[in-house]
């Protein structure tokens, strides 16, 4: 049963990802991305990374994709014309993708699955403790990065407004 669900979500991930590439309608692509991210979240659950899965849903699906869809809708003509995305750099894109794929398959054989290494007892408590002790520096750097992005975004957004007022 577990294997069937695993392969179901694996196939769903691949199928929706391929659909993103094929479709020319940007909104359909964005909605397909929702399916991809949700099934990747389901795959995380199989590796016992429950917190990561929920975070994926919260941040990527609930936040980022919604913003993408928002952007698409606001640039869309309400009268019915949809934005069509073409495809460029087909040859170089294919080469790069294949190279990365080969590399991933090759290195994937070398790696041992993470799930066997990690202790999953009371994962949330562990996670919180480690974030505040062992991994404090990367955690703070990530926080700083987000803060910089936030400040920069509000400056970019408010820049025009300031010059209009004065």
């Amino acid at each position: 049963m577990t294997e069937v669900t695993f392969y179901f979500f694996g196939i769903l991930t691949l199928a929706s990802a391929i659909f993103i590439l094929i479709t020319k309608n940007v909104l359909h692509a964005a909605l397909s991305l929702v399916v991809t991210l949700l099934s990747v979240a389901a795959l995380y659950v199989f590796t016992n990374a429950e917190f990561l899965a929920v975070t994926q849903i919260m941040i990527y699906v609930g936040g980022i994709v919604v913003l993408i869809v928002f952007g698409v809708m606001l640039t869309n003509d309400v009268s019915g014309k949809t934005i069509i995305s073409g495809s460029v750099n087909r040859l170089s894109g294919t080469i790069i993708t294949l190279t990365v794929l080969v590399m991933l398959i090759y290195s994937g054989q070398e790696l041992t699955p993470i799930a066997t290494k990690v202790h999953n007892t009371a994962s949330i408590e562990n996670l919180g403790e480690h974030l505040m002790t062992t991994y404090l520096l990367p955690f703070e750097i990530a926080a700083l990065l987000l803060l910089i992005a936030l400040v920069a975004a509000s400056i970019i957004a408010g820049h025009d407004l300031q010059s209009k007022i004065s």
Binding site: F51, V54, V61, G62, G63, V66, V69, S123, I124
Partner: peptide, 22 residues
């Protein structure tokens, strides 16, 4: 009975925005 109870609830409920947008 999952470790992330409330967090899961908030995350999954935030998906209804996508339905509304669609």
């Amino acid at each position: 009975s999952i470790n992330t109870g409330v967090f899961f609830l908030l995350a999954i409920v935030s998906l209804d925005v996508i339905g509304i947008i669609i």
